[in-house]
Design a protein around this nucleic acid. Structure first.
Lengths: 206, 206, 206, 206
DNA sequence: GATGAATGAGAGTTCATTCAT
DNA sequence: CATGAATGAACTCTCATTCAT
């Protein structure tokens, strides 16, 4: 292994350390509670050092977002490889989103953050991860189209993004209004999810 | 008109001027770019004066949110009173959301659960406006259930909130990713909307 | 009664109303919680109107201080007229200070405020009330000197001011540190007072 | 000297610089006139920098208070170690208070229970310094009790706090009213002090 | 590469006082 | 006389970013 490569690896390692610290803080204090002093403290690095590995706080957030998307991609990939019908795969993908949100609510903030904040610039790499997810979901939709289970009026790529947008919206609704809806209307998150899946399933199917 | 009333009106007017200024700034610089110096500057008022009309910046945002919700409610009300089928009303409501977003993209930020919610405590009055919207939509869903056009597996109130969440998600997607999706995939906002409505219609119908 | 006089009385009355309101607020929220908005609110007068009767907030405080001093003077006068020894009168005056502090702790803040804040200017009228108190106490000390009960090394006027300063200091100590002293050292306010009176009595007596 | 230690010293030094600046401003403009802009200006530091050394303005005041108390403690300690009678030590302590006030009138503001207390929460460390002073004075009083020179009616700890309160009261009186008393009554600060010491001495002695 | 002290532009909020009506 | 809306300087505190060492 050359020096170049080792350096590269060390650099990657540092980045990873910083991202892990940022995650941990987000988990404890939420996205708004995250600042560079805390990251410096958590990593035992100087604040200036962090700027050697990431050119801004925004870049750290963008990397975390990429990480989150890759995790989601992995979950989706497992679904794609399952031996179930295409429609069931699409339903499973929605459920996977929900499970991801329940398991990593702080990560879901990042999705929201980037979905909502038009002033942050989505880098090429970030778009790539989105694209990967979209392509994966689309491939399932294409399969559904081929096997005739998909509503023929629906274009697979269009479906993919629509599902994405709608699902993120549902998760946000749960996160922000979930308690209120539960308390005032006695509708649980699970009931909302069930309704959403029912809607989507019927909407998708031929 | 008594002095009391005129004073009241003038006060309301000032509040309106401040809210309009806040809107304008939000339009130009987004929710994040909104601060009291800018509002003071835009209104040609001293910063202290603004505090005579609103007790905090948060209150200004909360008023704007209420305003936005009321505007949306009014749009929905017109649909409810139309002489069309219940299912068509629900579709029209989704379209109305889209039109509202196109007409007032800056106002739509206020619907984005995430951004606002990190900064704002949902007051009773704010919840009231949500509730009004929800009740209105639910009444249409109930009607659909009665006339047998609604998928019997779906509970009207659950449908209402699911539609709300999903629709806001779609609008956010358009706002933040619309250009990218158009440029890279050649899917227009209208195409996304069409897909979404198709999905929802099939999902809702019996 | 001429117009001049009635006007004067009305003016005096307004001033009284304003002072009463200020007192009430001080009682509820302390000296630091007192502001002109609250006074305006309490009196149902416009803020500008208050400035017709007092030229500044400081003037209001100075009048309240005068009132407090007059109340204290009245308490002292009763003691002077009692049929007890001069030394007992001086002791009674210290006790009267304590009782006044216990009954009107918010008024005592005013004493402190003026005793401590060298940037507030004592008006001639304010000094007058101090002088009245001092003269009254001095007259008792002079009597003690005459009847031979006073330590001959002590000048009556010097004693008067020394007693005043020391007593205010003790009251402030009680107010600010009373709880701490009670909790940590188990010395009650009454025990402190007793010690102080014992000290002063022995100090004063021949 | 290790880096750790040098860094620590530099940090302490900066804190000292900030405290000195705060002192200087207090001397010129009083406790009320002290604000962070002035401190920043005086130290030639950015406002934010000051927050690297003290977490709030209150902390600065609390440090100054502790400093002042420690200075006073040191003065008292010298007296305790002198080869004079216990009673003379107690008298010397009162004189030391006066000298401290004359030398550092701006610091004496920090002793004034009232002013400071309205703005400051007495921390454990702050109380500790009070306690040290009190214990020192008490030990002298206890000695006086042992050698039979103390008025047996008087409890040493009670005496300690009473002396403290009364003395601070006298100093405040001098600070705020000294000029007036001198001008109108021709009683000098020294005369007041003499009277006070005479009173206390007689009060304390058996 | 690594440091972390320093920066300084903001941020939201308060309140005694003024002045046009 | 009375009003009360308007003022605006003052206040404490935050934090992403820079740069001399």
């Amino acid at each position: 292994m050359g020096t170049q490569t080792r350096k590269q690896l060390e650099k990657e390692n540092r980045r990873e350390v910083i991202l892990k610290a940022a995650e941990k803080i987000m988990l404890e204090k939420g996205l708004h509670g995250l600042n560079l002093d805390l990251i410096a403290n958590e990593t035992q690095l100087a604040k200036g050092t962090i700027y050697l590995y990431f050119k801004s706080k925004e870049e750290i957030l963008s990397f975390l977002t990429v990480k989150a998307r890759i995790m989601l991609y992995d979950d989706f990939l497992k679904i794609k490889n399952k031996n179930i019908s295409s429609i069931d795969k699409l339903k499973a993908i929605i459920k996977a989103n929900y499970l991801f949100y329940k398991k990593n609510p702080h990560y879901y903030d990042l999705f929201s953050f980037y979905e909502v904040n038009e002033r942050l610039i989505e880098t090429e790499e970030m778009y790539k991860t989105s694209e990967n997810i979209a392509n994966l979901v689309e491939s399932i939709a294409v399969q559904a189209k081929k096997d005739g289970s998909l509503n023929p009026n629906i274009n697979p790529m269009s479906l993919t993004w629509t599902m994405y947008g709608a699902t993120v919206g549902i998760m946000q609704l749960m996160k922000v209004r979930g308690t209120l809806i539960k308390d005032k209307l006695n509708i649980s998150e699970e009931a909302l999810l069930k309704t959403f899946i029912e809607l989507m399933e019927n909407g998708i199917k031929k």
